[in-house]
Every structure is written in structure tokens, then in C-alpha cells.
Amino acid sequence: MVKEIERAGIPIVHMCNIVPVSKTVGANRIVPTISIPYPLGDPATSREDQWKLRYHRVRVALEALATDVEEQTVFPV
């Protein structure tokens, strides 16, 4: 899916936990998430902590969309 959208020239950032899968499917901008069932907020932590984590990673993702990359890039979080 990511590939088809990128093929059309729309920049897309892939937020996922299993980065090797994302690399294999060919995403070019990758932002790691924390897990499969809850990519952006660990239910074992407080609402505030979940919000902070989610805000941070989504912000990294947004900035990735505005970043020029030469090759598949995993953005640090």
C-alpha cells in the first residue's frame, strides 16, 4: 500500500514496529512504533505518558514527510 501511494509521488511515512518488514515492503520513510497491538501508546503507562509518546512519534513522522531522503531511512525517535 505504502509503495503504491509513493509511486504516485505522494510522500508517505510508514509508522510500524517491525522495521525489517517495512524495509522489505519498500517504505522509504520509516518511523518505529512501540509494539504491534498498540503502536502509539502503551496501556500499562499513564494517559499522559501515552499522549507524550504518541505526540512525539507522530511529530517525528510529520517532520519525516518534509525531509528529503536519499535512501530508505528509519527516523530516530
Binding site: 508517505i12 509508522m15 510500524c16 518488514v21 517504505a27 503502536p39 514527510l65
Partner: peptide
């Protein structure tokens, strides 16, 4: 649909 709505960029969240 994305193109018709002038979407500039996408975030895909996978599990």
C-alpha cells in the same frame, strides 16, 4: 480519492 482531495502527504500506521 486522495489525489482528488489534494492530499499532500500520508501517514500509514501498521500493526
Amino acid at each position: 480519492l486522495l489525489q482528488a482531495d489534494n492530499v499532500d502527504a500520508c501517514i500509514m500506521v501498521s500493526t
